[in-house]
């Protein structure tokens, strides 16, 4: 991790700082009056730029499109690299609702052993049935919702042992 450039998450998509190397960037104006950005000879109109130095988040409009940019500093990258915030490495003990919806059907019971990708329940949202599959192998400890219940996004549906 000998990286000393920032990385960026632009509207949810990661962009590596290295990919910006070699760009010829020029900026005119300041935060209050708006900016004119020139990159390799092409200019962009920037408005409503707001930089939060504590949160390291920049929001702005570039040619009327809204952007939210998270700045990931080398220090932050190092922490990530050490695995402190690596959620995916942890054991998943819960299944959460990926979207709000109605519990249309539950295909498993408490105490049942399931395999990876086995259908657990069907969540109905916007007239469509979405199958919730098991994220892991394991035994179901508790089913937290009833059939026909209405659930919010991220509500815990199922707990594993």
């Amino acid at each position: 991790m000998e990286n000393n450039t920032n990385n960026y998450i632009v509207n949810g998509r990661e962009i590596e700082g290295e990919s910006l190397e070699g760009l010829h960037v020029q900026l005119k104006g300041d935060l209050s009056t708006g900016h004119l950005l020139n990159i390799d000879g092409k200019s962009y109109q920037i408005k409503e730029a707001k930089l939060d130095l504590d949160q390291k988040i920049l929001s702005c409009k570039i040619d009327s499109k809204y952007y939210e940019i998270e700045i990931i500093t080398p220090f932050h990258q190092m922490i990530q690299g050490m695995g402190f915030s690596d959620v995916s490495a942890m054991e998943v003990n819960e299944v959460k609702a990926p979207m709000p919806g109605l519990v249309f059907d539950i295909m498993v019971a408490e105490g049942q052993e399931v395999t990876l990708d086995e259908p657990l329940m069907i969540l109905e949202a916007m007239k469509m049935e979405n199958i919730i599959k098991s994220p892991r192998e394991g035994t179901i400890k508790k089913i937290k919702v009833n059939k026909t219940a209405s659930v919010e996004k991220n509500a815990v549906l199922i707990e594993f042992e």
Binding site: N11, L20, V25, L51, I69
Partner: peptide, 11 residues
């Protein structure tokens, strides 16, 4: 997004 990132970098 590279344009936005480049702007963020400079700022």
């Amino acid at each position: 997004g590279r344009v936005a990132a480049a702007f963020a970098q400079l700022l």
